[in-house]
Write a protein that binds this DNA or RNA. Structure first.
Length: 449
DNA sequence: AATCCGTGGAA
DNA sequence: TTTCCAAGGAT
């Protein structure tokens, strides 16, 4: 080990022990508590995590408690934190611990690494922080700090670079102090050796920092830029209940896999207008931005502030109606624009245009066709609504439900039994149980204010 | 290897 | 306003 490397390890360890923050997961070295904190901290800032962590540990204090909980409650506890597969994987991991390891997180690198949602970084963090094992825990902070200190110019966006830095980090761990040293590395990255304006003047290892000596502290680490998120326009339906569902709105649960898996949301579809454009033209980033801006109109931040041009509204309502009928077997009749919201994911940015809609259809006994409640085919329904209703082929349950409602249906009630199985009517109180991504939380809170 | 997974804070 | 990116993992 070089002089500079020994200096680094010694000074960093001393600095950490004198300057470490008092954080809730540093209360003790319970490996379960460390594990939960490390998963929450993945791609997420400390300040954001703290309240979630406290609530989570309060509710699921042990791996056994987490393992036994309904997944719905776990997701609800994670609501707003993002990367929701972390929550589902963490619970799966807790179930492995409960079933295969007697409820105790094993002091074993291979077994920890095999847990669901635990990758190379989290394995190293748990092994070093909870068990003081000399394993490297290389995250973004560590790659930045070491890139600067040793003036490494490899692209830290490449997986191979992380592997190399892991070897270096392992070689730096002082005997018997893996946990404190690894945390010190991250603490330095978070508090001093920050991405944009590193605080070299207060840095405990500045004297031997090669990056600074080379005048490259602002250039390092080298990192290739991520692709910008692709824009998507989503058309959403704010379906307002009547009759038995007065005061409620219609929400649906997302599929088991993929984006926002098993979260709840307003029913929505990809604007077919947009997908055509994307396919045919393959627009550049500028054109995308322009198109997005055009539809955003002059929003003032409030959900209900802007109004797209009337012609656009008509087309979008038509598309929303037809697509929900085709893709979801859900018959709604959009009645007007309600609001909009933007939602930025890592790789997608949604422009959500929300339309009020009526729900409900009744069997017209004269024509034996389904029609929208209170409107009816050919009696004032919008063309799209009329066509989708007329084309709808009722199943037995629909007929039975329509029949059951009888006169109530004619007066604007609807066939509840015909709802697709992943749909529910909810009131504000139901928001306490169901987990929604932030964009829909914002919209629903706005609606229920 | 590249892409898919959220969200919010800071500059 | 835009850009970056934070204690990453799974596929």
């Amino acid at each position: 080990m070089t002089e500079a490397a020994q200096y680094f390890s010694r000074e960093l360890l001393a600095w950490y022990r004198a300057n470490k923050r008092d954080l809730p997961w540093r209360m003790n070295r319970d490996p379960y508590r460390i594990w939960v904190s490390e998963v929450m901290l993945q791609q997420t800032r400390v300040d954001t995590v703290i309240p979630y962590y406290n609530r989570f540990m309060d509710k699921f204090p042990t791996a056994a408690a987490l393992a036994a909980a309904p997944e719905e409650e776990v997701l609800k506890c994670w609501e707003g934190l993002g990367y929701y597969s972390r929550a589902r994987n963490l619970q799966a991991g807790a179930q492995e611990v409960a079933e295969r390891h007697g409820g105790v997180v094993p002091d074993n690198k291979e077994l920890v690494s095999a847990l669901r949602g635990v990758g190379p970084y989290t394995t190293g963090a748990i092994m070093s922080i909870a068990f003081n094992r000399p394993e490297p825990a290389v995250d973004g902070n560590v790659m930045r700090v070491l890139s600067r200190y040793f003036c490494l110019e490899e692209d830290i966006a490449k997986p191979a670079t992380r592997v190399g830095i892991e070897k270096l980090a392992a070689s730096l761990i002082p005997d018997g102090a893996a946990g404190d040293f690894n945390q010190g590395l991250m603490e330095l990255g978070a508090l001093v050796c920050t991405p944009k304006s590193p605080g070299c003047l207060t840095c405990p290892v500045m004297a031997h920092c090669e990056g600074r000596a080379a005048g490259k502290e602002h250039v390092l680490p080298i990192k290739t830029k991520a692709k910008p998120p692709r824009p998507e326009r989503r058309l959403a339906a704010l379906v307002i209940g009547t009759g038995a569902h007065e005061g409620k709105i219609l929400v649906r649960q997302r599929p088991d896999t993929g984006l926002l898996a098993r979260m709840w949301e307003l029913p929505h579809v990809l604007d077919p207008q947009q997908s055509d454009t994307v396919k045919k033209k393959g627009r550049g980033a500028k054109a995308k931005a322009a198109e997005q801006a055009e539809l955003m109109a002059e929003s003032a931040g409030s959900v209900a502030a802007a109004l797209p041009p009337a012609a656009v509204r008509e087309m979008q309502m038509d598309a929303l109606c037809r697509t929900l009928a085709a893709e979801e077997k859900l018959l709604v009749r959009p009645t007007g624009w309600w609001g909009e919201a933007e939602h930025v994911f890592s790789h997608i940015v949604w422009d959500v245009q929300v339309y009020r809609a009526d729900y409900g259809f009744v069997l017209d006994e004269e024509t034996d066709e389904f029609a929208y409640a209170g409107v009816g085919v050919g009696r004032g329904a919008s063309q799209a609504a009329a066509e989708t209703a007329a084309a709808y082929e009722p199943n037995g349950a629909d007929r039975e439900a329509a029949g059951l409602f009888g006169d109530a249906a004619v007066s604007g009630d609807h066939a509840a039994e015909a709802l697709p199985s992943n749909y529910r009517w909810i009131g504000p109180e139901d928001m306490r149980e169901l987990a929604f991504p932030n964009v829909f939380l914002r919209l629903l809170r706005e609606y229920w204010i």
